[in-house]
Design a protein around this nucleic acid. Structure first.
Lengths: 341, 341
DNA sequence: AAAAATGATGCAAACGGTTGCTTGATTTGA
DNA sequence: TCAAATCAAGCAACCGTTTGCATCATTTTT
């Protein structure tokens, strides 16, 4: 059954010429006569010859393949980033291998090994929530395979990275809320296992300081991102004698859960309690009462920029240029959505 | 710079033995002496030897790679399907190459060629909106590379496919609305270029017939899925002398646009005008006034099932078994979300 | 003690394509 | 007319790994 695919060898035999001639003919090498070229191309066409890339990859030591490892594709943020990566890859004649770590460090390790086995020319990674060191990427570096981290960037020196700074937008968010008259602003953050820079909180704190508001630690609570975790966080905030009038949430998903919970409590969103969050997912614009504002992190662009950087590194490697560590920082943007009171 | 990677040849030279011995030692072949085995393994470890998979792929004529081609990753439906595919691939020790057609038939063709060049062991495809024939998949079949279509399945015979039938749920949706007292039910469909089965409309029509309601063609309008297109469609429906009291929309995105438009018109959603749609995206559950119901199409499962079928076909091919065309049909489910009046 | 079985290792071909070097034939130049 | 230049094509090595088939040295069997 297993139909053997045509090879240049077969073409050579049929035409009674050597394989090298066939190879050169197919590549329009100048030293091959026109007649021979035509014959070869015609037969190749007839046999539906397709060069065996695995042989070529093997010989050229290059696969035109990059690996992409990220926590998951269910979150819109990552699927948009992937979309950007794929678009850039397509433009550059590369193709991307996908892997989801599902925030498991073991699975992340396995994926790195698999990608390495497949001899990817480079790797794009958004690390799992539980990844605290980057040892499992070391062997890639030994192989001289470039790695670019994006969005979830490990907090270690000497890496290439692309991420979106939330610091300024976080401060802007505070300014925005204070201009609206809010003085007690709560913040629901994530679990503190994330070993990445906590720019949201830094911006929050400095925004308060800048506006001469004393920081009240009881206004900062944590959620594990589950609906229940967020509800608990909300309970903490609403139990305060001096309740917040506005709340900043780690991301839109947390905001959605929080807002739904608040609705159940018969509080008016953006009237009794204002919301600002991160991500600016398209869906928030469809809500009857959306958060007042959300910080856009440009996932598509992050993916695209990370891919561009990776291709640059691959090219540099091939021309044995030096490549200092590069860290691209995009700026987030505070997008005003709702009207509020 | 380009550091040469260690090979079994190098190990062989250093230990003054043959490459075949090294190869066998690393594979724990019984005919290799214990001492030699130990020596080889120790040295391999020291050199950080990693077998060159491109050489092995080449020799074995198998890459443990599958291709995935779908319209785009921005739509949650497809990113969830991809998530299912990747999970199954990981389980089966495969890895997936991603490609987005962006509903361009040319890009789809290019992707098919690229995947073929990369010698994928199989291909999963959700065809582009503009794909009306499947000629560009023919060469894969000649190569005996299995192809499984999912969700957006071309309407041609002799293919493998996985899709989710909307027929029964569409009828159920009608039953559901009629039980709620609705008699005039509108339907916003998509552009009619889609060459796939139109089960939504079939279910709509048969649902009406079953409930002995005469079909009024002016209640069926089209949208190109843009916000403007949907608004125009709504205008058509609301301009009727005998207006609908309920509307079924092609998908949740259309429903969201329609509902937002209706809100602007100061109509009460699910009171003046009830909505039912398709997709059951997580977000609809966060709306203050969600559609009454949405048809869940199980994108993750579709992806997972399609991947499973593909792996089965690959295995069968390897054991030269016969493989009749298989068409897996999942059932959609009408999920009741809101309360309505 | 000679024949047979066993154990440990090496040889070489194969997978498909690329490419530097050679060779032979034809054309060009003086 | 003969050497040099040009053209067209072939030879063979190479990329890294696997594997059927020798080969040779022991050990076991009778």
């Amino acid at each position: 059954m297993e139909k053997k695919l045509p090879t240049i060898k077969e073409i050579a035999q049929r035409l009674n010429i050597s394989v090298s001639t066939v190879s050169r003919a197919l590549h329009d090498h100048p030293s091959i006569g026109l007649r021979t070229k035509m014959q070869v191309k015609k037969l190749a066409e007839e046999l539906h010859y397709v060069p065996n890339q695995t042989a070529i990859f093997f010989k050229q030591r290059k696969t035109y393949t990059i690996g992409v490892i990220l926590p998951n594709l269910r979150e819109e943020f990552f699927s948009l980033a992937t979309s950007g990566i794929e678009d850039k890859a397509f433009e550059n004649n590369y193709i991307a291998l996908m892997g989801q770590s599902h925030d498991s460090i073991d699975r992340e390790k396995t994926l790195v090994e698999t990608m390495q086995k497949h001899r990817v020319d480079g790797l794009l990674v958004s690390i799992s929530k539980n990844t605290s060191n980057v040892d499992h990427f070391q062997s890639l570096l030994q192989f001289n395979i470039p790695v670019v981290f994006f969005d979830r960037v490990p907090d270690v020196p000497n890496i290439h990275s692309v991420w979106c700074s939330l610091y300024h937008s976080s401060m802007e968010a505070i300014d925005f809320l204070i201009k609206k008259g809010h003085k007690r602003i709560g913040y629901i953050q994530g679990p503190d296992t994330l070993s990445i820079k906590n720019e949201r909180l830094q911006g929050y704190l400095n925004g308060l300081k800048k506006n001469k508001i004393v920081h009240d630690p009881s206004l900062v609570v944590s959620s594990d991102f589950s609906a229940e975790g967020t509800q608990k966080a909300m309970d903490q905030l609403l139990a305060l004698k001096n309740k917040p009038t506005a709340i900043i949430t780690f991301n839109d998903y947390v905001a959605l859960d929080a807002m739904q919970y608040v609705r159940k409590k018969k509080l008016k969103i953006n009237k009794d309690l204002a919301f600002v969050s991160y991500a600016n997912l398209p869906i928030t614009h469809y809500l009857e009462t959306p958060p007042l504002a959300s910080v856009e992190q440009f996932p598509y662009d992050q993916g695209a920029r990370a891919a561009e950087l990776l291709f640059k590194l691959i090219d540099q490697k091939e021309s044995s240029e030096s490549h200092p560590f590069e860290n691209v920082v995009l700026n987030s943007e505070l997008v005003i959505i709702g009207q509020g009171k």
